[in-house]
Design a protein around this nucleic acid. Structure first.
Lengths: 133, 133
DNA sequence: AGTGTAGTTTGACGATCGCCGTACTACTTC
DNA sequence: GAAGTAGTACGGCGATCGTCAAACTACACT
């Protein structure tokens, strides 16, 4: 994704790279993450799809690369749910909003949970015949 | 439901223990169990409590031993959700309805998932201060 | 300044959820 | 039989969910 090239020096007022914009995003502290909220977040196919993609790519991704089969506002909603329950971290970079899995926090709080959920999703996908969704 | 007009049928008392009654309970086949349904089922605190108790006791338990802080009809509802999504197996024994975890099925479909979810629940309970909710 | 891209906010919608009480069925025991 | 116990079915209630369209804000690139 990301033709990361963008060599034309983000000369912007700031010094180096496109930094987080003024808009602020609320994230729960690690200790505030609740298992039931995480399970609920992951019980939606759209959100599971997002989490699986983030895991596979293993890097920050902008919301727009996901191309979910729902409207823009619904996409915003799902990312917000994932962020507010502590599953992903989001940050503004210019006009994009980058998302990343909060792997370290989740692994610290619930060891092995994310791995087994993702493995289960992959297994089920294979079982049901590659309906990635 | 079925007008079991077989009066001589309940010979059970004479023979052995109370067997499964005529009332039938629908369970999804193993292959029909869906990850998203399981995660949704476990995202409710009442149902998580039931599942944790079943795991700890590791045997069939009647609904009435759980003593959830909700009404009888709500309890029925939660057990039904757990059964219909494939997390528990239920069977009538006389006037009681016994419930048991479908550990083998869940472990076969989603290896490690149940364990890590239960471990996560235990960890969180310790973290948040023993509110066994 | 003007156009375009990326994402948000609002308000609405139907569906589902968790919960209740009441009335009911199925079984056991007296 | 009658009485008691265990659980179900049926609405109904308010809250939340997933979804959408429309109007909006924030940034980038001419």
């Amino acid at each position: 994704m990301q033709t990361q090239t963008t060599p034309t020096a983000p000369q912007s007022r700031a010094s180096s790279q496109p930094q987080a914009s003024g808009r602020s995003l609320e994230h729960p502290r690690r200790e505030a993450i609740r298992l039931e909220d995480v399970l609920h977040a992951l019980s939606d196919p759209m959100r599971m799809r997002v989490v699986r993609t983030l895991e596979e790519e293993n890097c920050e991704l902008s919301c727009s690369v996901f191309d979910l089969p729902v409207s823009k506002s619904t996409t915003t909603h799902h990312f917000r749910v994932l962020r507010e329950c502590g599953v992903i971290h989001q940050i503004y970079r210019g006009t994009a909003k980058m998302s990343a899995l909060r792997r370290d926090d989740l692994d610290a709080l619930f060891p092995g949970l994310l791995d087994s959920v993702l493995a289960a999703a992959a297994l089920q996908e294979g079982r049901l015949g590659g309906n990635r969704g």
